[in-house]
Design a protein around this nucleic acid. Structure first.
Lengths: 168, 168
DNA sequence: ATAAAGTTTCATTATTTTTTGAAAGTTTAA
DNA sequence: TTAAACTTTCAAAAAATAATGAAACTTTAT
């Protein structure tokens, strides 16, 4: 297999996987590209390689930076901005877990709490079942979210320790 | 809050959450509806409640059954089919994890293995970096997938034990 | 065997999401 | 201060995804 073929296959697959997980294709592709790039890439480089417009590149790079998994880098003597991906996979996993928890799980928990405790003065079997069921769901999602938090804390500490060790 | 209002809010939220996680809105809404329904619902009931077409209801019910999180139920004397949701949340989580692993992670692993071990006779720095990086990614995703497997096995055994206990 | 009751399929239509590109905005060097 | 180099925004267009509904199919009771 040619290198360019392999690279392309990797970027396409990562993009498709992103879509399936609710992350847009271009965002996932840019991330994939940066993950395997040995050096920081400019917006031009990215547009060229993925054949996408400037606006698209700009918006998705911003999104990746908001997620904390891509960083800007300035090169001496260059006016352009360059971009690099978080390449530590543990760190990547932690960041993604934290962002999804913050953006999706937390708001869902709020709604679950509201609806499970909000129905008053309705003694129908349907209403009672609803309240019981949504309460269970609230507890379950809360536990799952706490578990994610625990795991990411653990990873962060582990990474923290590693960083300390390296920097001495 | 009225019961109908709470119910609606729950179904809408669950649907929106589904979209964000790459599951279509109607599929998630049907699941939400069945989760809080005290009894099995017919396709008519579901169409009525969610204001969706027969075709849409049929296809998404099929998808939910393929995922193993909704079951058909036949009522004595009724020709119609009725549907109920998996209500055990541990079981639900296990099923979803298993399906996503099978449908998305396993195929991704295959591609990662192919591209990480497929580039030969290219000594450029870029190619070397690519191979190293995709290898790391392969190992990481493989480990994550194994972890999911371990956790679901554990949950399954726990459920198995519980079922045994109940049935004596 | 057949007709009624019910379900599934799939070409077409509608909706949602993503992408484009040109205009507006920003920063930097001189 | 200004103009060149670069980035961001956002309305409009394109692409992708989901929903409809009528026809085809299946099952069941007689």
């Amino acid at each position: 297999m040619e290198f360019s073929e392999a690279k392309n296959k990797f970027i396409q697959t990562w993009g498709a996987l992103g879509s399936q997980w609710g992350i847009n294709k271009t965002m996932a592709q840019i991330h994939a590209l940066l993950m395997v790039a040995p050096d920081a890439l400019s917006m031009e480089d990215i547009m060229e390689e993925l054949q996408i417009s400037r606006g698209n590149a700009s918006m998705n790079l911003r999104a990746l930076m908001d997620w904390g998994i891509v960083y800007k880098e300035y090169k001496a003597g260059e006016r352009k901005e360059f971009f690099i991906a978080e390449k530590d996979l543990d760190e990547l996993a932690v960041k993604i877990a934290q962002e999804r928890s913050k953006r999706e799980i937390k708001p869902a928990l709020k709604v679950l709490k509201d609806v499970s405790s909000g129905v008053k003065n309705d003694t129908s079997a349907e209403a009672k079942h609803f309240t019981a069921q949504t309460e269970k769901l609230y507890d379950f999602v809360l536990k799952a979210d706490n578990m994610i938090e625990k795991v990411t804390e653990m990873k962060e500490n582990w990474i923290g320790r590693l960083v300390m060790k390296i920097m001495k």
